[in-house]
């Protein structure tokens, strides 16, 4: 269970996230929506401390996350994997090494510097890739892949961390509709089959409605909506998005008009086991 107690983030002269208090139980799929600059990304990046909170507290199963330092902090980051909008993979390394880098926390200094990975790690990484239908690219250089493929590799890297929570910062904002669906389906499958908590920043309303158990709306750093997808009426959504409402609605029409579990797309992820 992840608890926020008045978590805030202040950049020099503006407050990106005003005191936020939330409780996210295990196994929920949460979508955070809001227009660009609403503080979604900052909130998400505070969870794994890529952005340092300026105030407040964050607890995970009673453990104070905001106070972690050094190895404890890295262990926490290893427990809550993150998927980024721009994938943040190492383009010049092969896909397999990128995925195996998710195990680095368990390595000693020498083996990680020498890039030595065990056969077990390799088999595990292949299995993770296989789950996302990407095992055939294992030996390709990563920057030769398409955006959708890279995002699935990034999810595989997150999976080999064996995380407790999966954070996804605008995972489909750089993808075309078909790939967006593949990636969102994968995240949903991880949430349902593995029981992982997934917290996902989304720009488009429709995606959030279709995939998430719970939707959190943010506006100017304040949480203005917190409820189930059904409770998110068009009126409430218009309030969250303000001037960008039309854009958010129209994007929703084009980007994820495919519903989860419709007919499988050509490259839909296979679920192993």
């Amino acid at each position: 269970m992840l608890e926020f107690k008045g978590l805030t983030k202040q950049f020099r002269d503006n407050v990106a996230v005003k005191p936020a208090t939330l409780t996210i139980p295990d196994g929920q799929m949460v979508g955070i929506i809001g227009r660009s600059g609403a503080g979604k990304s900052t909130l998400l990046r505070m969870i794994n401390r890529l952005n340092e909170p300026s105030g407040g507290q964050m607890l995970f199963d009673g453990r104070d996350i905001t106070a972690l330092k050094g190895r404890d902090l890295r262990q926490w980051r290893n427990e809550c994997a993150m998927v980024f909008q721009q994938f943040n993979l190492v383009g010049r390394l092969d896909v397999l090494t990128n995925v195996m880098s998710g195990r680095l926390f368990h390595h000693g200094f020498v083996t990680s510097m020498a890039g030595m990975f065990s056969a077990k790690e390799r088999a595990f990484a292949i299995r993770a890739l296989d789950r996302l239908g990407m095992a055939h690219t294992a030996l390709q250089q990563t920057d030769t892949l398409s955006g959708g493929q890279m995002q699935r590799v990034a999810i595989a890297r997150a999976l080999v961390q064996e995380p407790r929570i999966m954070l996804a910062d605008e995972p489909i904002a750089s993808l075309d509709p078909l790939n967006a669906k593949v990636v969102m389906d994968a995240l949903r499958a991880i949430n349902q089959e593995d029981g992982l908590t997934v917290i996902c920043n989304l720009h488009t309303l429709d995606t959030a409605r279709q995939y998430c158990d719970r939707v959190i709306g943010m506006q100017d750093g304040v949480i203005v909506f917190d409820g189930t997808a059904k409770e998110l009426t068009d009126k409430a959504a218009r309030e969250i998005y303000g001037a960008e409402a039309e854009e958010a609605f129209s994007e929703a029409m084009t980007s994820t008009s495919l519903r989860p579990g419709d007919k499988p797309a050509a490259e839909a992820p296979r679920v192993v086991n």
């Binding site: 890529l50 890295r74 994997a81 943040n88 993979l89 190492v90 890297r157």
Partner: peptide
Amino acid sequence: MRPVDGMKAVGGSWFEQMRYG
């Protein structure tokens, strides 16, 4: 710096961020 962010998020130390990122 994107790969560095990625390595930070998997719990990599500064050395690992440099070595892989």
